[in-house]
Nucleic acid binder design. Structure first.
Length: 482
RNA sequence: CGGAGCGUAGCGCAGCCUGGUAGCGCACCUGCUUCGGGAGCAGGGGGUCGGAGGUUCGAAUCCUCUCGCUCCGACCA
């Protein structure tokens, strides 16, 4: 994480030591509710119809600025960043390389691919002061192809997969459901460039594996389903659907699929057979959205395993061959000296939408329940008697020790009643809460409460800290932060 | 884009039909009491009634236009 440079570069004066001393990421800094910006709402905003939208507004995560356009408030931003982090890690683990392309693109690129006219009203078109046609990118196939053709000429530079996490704009006719169907949304979009169709299909399969890992780390079960290619075009495509009653897509699947998990198994991303095996494992059973549903084939599944449900689309992978490389001249010279268009695919994860999807999949009547992998803070700390010297100093010490073990803590140090603090913690959904009161503390006991189960266990502070450290160990182990 | 509806204090709403000093709850501020699941009492601050035009002695209220937002449908990460 970038460290803010002090004006003197930390060399001249001791006062700057505390700044440069921050070895941990900014997330590791003490965060106290009294000093934070957490504008929670007690009542449901009228405009929010579905639970994730309501909870995001109530928990002070987002503020709507316009139809389908949101500001991200601190708590929401933290989760968004966590999700981005996981996406980055899983992409890079597979050897995919991050780039960042602009949100505003020139119309000329899109004229080359023919999509400037094809894309329609959903593309936000802008004219600059010189009357040049520009657009706010709804996706980036053209631009990445332009980058590729400018710099890559030989098959020896392949395979190559570039990706970014960047804001997109699609001028939806009817934005709704908060961040689930916004007009401006954060998306990871990746593009693979390969010499042959086989190589490109390996990239496709490899992405499927990275996506399975990515969603699982976020506490989601996302089922790959055969899908329609839509305006991206292409021959092969799967969508990843999270099952939720509020999903926009109707889905049909074999219930055996929900038993599958990728887990922590090791995989060699450069091994086509290994990736192919995962694809087969996860896509051989029937799973379709309404777009591609085939009732006859569905009927062949034993009746007890047939499921019809609703799902939220959280990602999609495409293989589209030379659809863009050909018209745009993205070619490489092959081993035989011939110049050939590269085989491409693109792969998207709806990063901002995932917040909605996770909440839809994980909440109760009191609020959000964050999976450990994406929680904005690892632990919530509630001081039941603010101002009492014993509880205050116990909380300070617990906060410090949790942080020393790499956990982020949101310490509710407000001078509020217990009920208000509990209600806030439940609403914002931190998976674990430590409660410190004078009564328990007299016996060297604090409480550790699971947001998900609601179960509370009394124990010594040290015990709770060790327990939490152990609990988060696998979460940390999956990330690069080490 | 077709259909339905809503814009009144930061949030949730009443008032509009039948025109006459802009209200309630939460939140916020002060004080006292309270203190393990969104406390009580007392006091206080805050509103261009989305905007423009019109009717009228007088408009949050009636009329016209306009902007914004939400919901249902057809499209999509």
């Amino acid at each position: 994480m970038a460290r803010r440079p002090s004006p003197c570069n930390g060399r001249c004066c001791p006062r700057h030591v505390p700044l440069t001393r921050a070895k941990q990421s900014p997330e590791g800094q003490p965060m106290r509710v009294s000093r934070y910006f957490l504008p929670v709402l007690r009542e449901n905003p009228a405009e929010a119809q579905i639970v994730s939208h309501r909870l995001m507004l109530r928990a002070g995560m987002i503020k709507q600025q316009s139809a389908g356009i949101y500001s991200w408030l601190p708590l929401g931003l933290r989760v968004l960043r966590r999700i981005e982090e996981i996406v980055h890690e899983e992409q890079q683990r597979a050897g995919h390389i991050p780039v960042l392309m602009p949100t505003i693109q020139s119309a000329d690129l899109w004229r080359e691919s023919g999509r400037y006219d094809d894309y329609g009203e959903e593309m936000l078109r802008i004219t600059d002061r010189h009357k040049r046609d520009m657009l706010f990118g709804p996706t980036n196939e053209e631009m990445i192809t332009d980058i590729f053709r400018a710099h890559v000429n030989s098959y020896k530079d392949l395979p190559l997969t570039l990706y970014q996490i960047q804001w997109k704009f699609r001028d939806e006719i009817r934005p709704r459901f908060g961040v689930m169907r916004g007009r401006e949304f954060l998306m990871k979009d990746g593009y693979n460039f390969d010499l042959t169709k086989d190589d490109a299909l390996h990239a496709y399969n490899r992405h499927l594996v990275t996506y399975l890992r990515t969603y699982e780390r976020m506490g989601l079960q996302a089922i790959p389903m055969r899908a329609d290619s839509g305006p991206i075009g292409g021959e092969d495509t799967h969508e990843f659907l999270v099952l939720a009653d509020t999903g926009e897509s109707e889905v049909f699947y074999d219930s055996e699929l929900t038993q599958l998990t990728f887990g922590d198994r090791e995989i060699d991303y450069d091994d086509p057979a290994a990736c192919r095996a995962v694809l087969e494992e996860f896509t051989s059973r029937y799973a379709r959205t309404d777009e591609t549903h085939d009732p006859d084939e569905f009927a062949r599944i034993p009746e007890a395993r047939r499921r019809q449900a609703r799902g939220i689309e959280v990602g999609q992978i495409f293989y589209f061959g030379t659809k863009y490389s050909e018209p745009m001249g993205a070619t490489v010279v092959g081993p035989d000296g011939q110049r050939v268009p590269v085989h491409m695919g693109s792969h998207g994860i709806g990063v901002s939408r995932l917040l909605g999807a996770i909440i839809e999949a994980s909440h109760d009547e009191r609020g959000i329940i964050w999976p450990e992998g994406v929680t904005p803070f690892h632990v919530g700390l509630v001081n039941l008697k603010q101002g009492d010297s014993s509880t205050d100093s116990a909380c300070d010490a617990i906060e410090r020790e949790l942080q020393a073990r790499g956990m982020t803590v949101l310490y509710d140090d407000r001078d509020e009643r217990a009920g208000a603090k509990f209600a806030t913690m439940d609403l914002i959904g931190l998976p674990w809460r430590i409660t410190v009161g004078p009564r328990g503390l007299a016996a060297n006991k604090i409480e550790l409460t699971s947001r998900r189960s609601g179960q509370t266990v009394e124990m010594a502070p040290q015990e709770a800290i060790a327990h939490l450290a152990e609990l988060y160990e696998p979460v940390f182990a999956r990330s690069f932060r080490g």
